Simulated assay, not measured.
Amino acid sequence: MSVHGDAPVVLAELPVEVTTDGYFAPDVPDHARRKVRAALRYCPYPILRASVRMVRFPDPALPRPVVSNALVNVNGRLVRVQTTASSAREGLDALQHSLRTAIERIDRHPGRRGHGQRPVVPDAGDDPEIHPHGTYAPVSCTVDEAIADLDALDREFHLFHDVDTDVDTVVFRAGPTGYRLAQVRHQPLEVTPATPVAIEVGDAPRLSVGDATERLRCSGQPWVLFADSATGRGTVLHVGRDGHYGLVTLD
């Protein structure tokens, strides 16, 4: 049994909001609800809300086109996990495991978060590991398509290759319009996006992964865009939800 609002709720009856984008079999939403409830079965804290968002990208070149996000409010603290997979069921199996692991971490990183706040990122210590991974969505696209992918993936940033400017670019949530672009090589936009977007002035720094790691560590920021000195490609080093670093590349 857990708690939803002020009243006790049996987890089998816990409302789990599921939204999908792209083709999924009709039974996938109910399967997602069962997986989330199973992951939360042994949570010792009140569950205030749980939701899942699943996206299937139609690009046949993507080996893992299904992205699944779970967001759970555990007694006022937000817990978020994300998986990529080749199929919906594979993704939900991984989501259940990741969510249960994240819930177990709450005891190791106590603290209460208010409603609407971003999830806490645990500190991995002085020597965080670096885990390389590709971008979750198609690599080459327009700015408007990248913004749509950013929203579909429910992420804070998205690295892509802008097909109109031929420049590696990051779109992220910031600025008066809600979206902002940072480019490896500053270039005026060839096509005006349908969505208003601000643009950073200047080129991204050219760094090795080691230098980018030190810059990220000292900056206190959640991520840094740089041109990899070994490849010249746009690369993002970011703090993962486990406190370790993720290295996003376009190769």
Rank of each mutant, 00 (worst) to 15 (best):
Leu62Phe: 04
His97Asn: 11
Ala227Leu: 02
Thr169Tyr: 01
His97Thr: 15
Ile47Tyr: 00
Pro63Glu: 02
Gly111Tyr: 05
Pro122Ser: 02
Ile103Lys: 03
Thr142Ala: 03
Thr19Val: 11
Phe24Val: 14
Ser140Gln: 07
Ala124Cys: 04
Thr165Trp: 03
Thr142Ser: 15
Val236Ala: 10
Val121Ile: 07
His186Leu: 01
Gly134His: 02
Ser51Val: 12
Ala38Cys: 13
Pro15Ile: 14
Arg155Asn: 06
Tyr23Ala: 12
Asp168Gly: 10
Arg56Gly: 13
Arg173Asp: 01
His131Ser: 03
Leu237Gly: 14
Glu156Lys: 14
Thr213Cys: 13
Phe172Asp: 03
Arg173Asn: 10
Val3Ser: 15
Asp228Gly: 13
Cys141Arg: 15
Phe157Met: 15
Pro176Lys: 02
Pro193Ala: 14
Val16Gly: 10
Val81Gln: 01
Val184Tyr: 02
Glu129Val: 08
Pro58His: 13
Arg118Ile: 07
Thr231Gly: 10
His115Tyr: 04
Gly234Phe: 01
His186Gln: 01
Asp151Phe: 00
Pro44Cys: 04
Ala85Arg: 07
Leu189Gln: 05
Arg185Gly: 11
Thr195His: 01
Arg215Thr: 14
Gly178Ile: 02
Gly234Met: 14
Gly114Pro: 00
Leu159Arg: 03
Val236Leu: 09
Arg233Gly: 08
Arg37His: 06
Asp151Leu: 02
Val36Tyr: 11
His244Tyr: 07
Ser51Tyr: 05
Leu216Cys: 11
Arg80Gly: 09
Ser86Phe: 06
Arg37Val: 05
Ala102Ile: 07
Thr177Ile: 00
Thr101His: 11
Pro193Arg: 15
Ala204Pro: 03
Ile47Ala: 03
Phe24Leu: 14
Gly116Asn: 08
Ala204Arg: 06
Gly5Met: 06
Pro46Arg: 00
Ala7Leu: 13
Asp107Cys: 05
Val201Cys: 02
Ala38Met: 10
Ala61Met: 04
